[in-house]
């Protein structure tokens, strides 16, 4: 894709909690270039998770403009937001968020379900994607039959299967030991080298240091 993957301009997000306005983001501008590799760093409560949700199209800003894949999310319906998440964004979560009782292959194929792609094609594509993350031998395994590192690689394969331009990883190594965490980071870096923009959300300095650039957040602002 030509042009930046995501452009946030003076984006703010305020929550209404029991009638009280709680600002979580107070005017943030940020551009994620295609093929970018950046880390969002900050203490908990700094607004980095809120920013990630906005960048991934899970939430909408209450102020400013946000372009994802060149489209202004303010003008998109819930269905169009869902489509945007399906086609342009890949999510990787700290706690993996795999469907229990579902095989690695069907977990990876899940985003394709919402594209109306038939079962056979889903299985073929998810098998190929599992092979790419080095899990060809775990294709029929359920999450509880796999290690944490393997589960996170399944989650990465799921994020990649729709060919997104941005991978948003929220503390991807948070639930893993350091050796396994290294493997997962290496995998993300390999994918980045192949052209996918990677946004890491982390409070781990060591992890953040591996990114090409760091964005440090504090009290809802970039510092």
């Amino acid at each position: 894709m030509s042009g930046p993957a995501i452009v946030a301009t003076d984006v703010s997000r305020t929550y209404q909690l029991d009638g009280v306005s709680v600002p979580a983001l107070r005017g943030v501008s940020l551009t994620v270039e295609s093929g970018d590799y950046l880390a969002l760093v900050g203490a908990s409560g700094s607004g980095k998770s809120t920013l990630m949700h906005l960048l991934g199209g899970l939430d909408r800003p209450t102020g400013g403009t946000l372009l994802i894949g060149g489209r202004d999310v303010a003008g998109l319906s819930p269905n169009e937001m869902a489509e945007l998440r399906n086609t342009t964004i890949g999510f990787v979560f700290q706690s993996f968020h795999l469907l229990a009782r579902t095989t690695a292959q069907d977990n990876v194929g899940l985003p394709l379900v919402y594209r109306g792609i038939g079962r056979r094609e889903r299985r073929e594509r998810s098998a190929a994607m599992l092979e790419r993350v080095g899990l060809a031998h775990r294709i029929g395994h359920r999450p509880n039959q796999m290690s944490g590192g393997e589960q996170q690689r399944v989650a990465i394969a799921r994020a990649l299967i729709t060919g997104p331009s941005v991978l948003l990883a929220d503390e991807p190594t948070g639930n893993l030991d350091s050796a396994t965490g290294q493997q997962v980071l290496t995998l993300l870096e390999t994918l980045n080298a192949e052209g996918v923009a990677v946004v890491l959300v982390t409070h781990d300095r060591e992890v953040a240091d591996r990114a090409r650039r760091q964005i440090v957040m504090k009290d809802g602002l970039i510092v």
């Binding site: 269905n79 869902a82 919402y114």
Partner: peptide
């Protein structure tokens, strides 16, 4: 609820 959140994150529409 978590499963619903995940499905939405990967592209499920409210109707789905």
């Amino acid at each position: 609820t978590k499963e619903i959140g995940l499905r939405k994150a990967v592209g499920a529409r409210p109707r789905d």
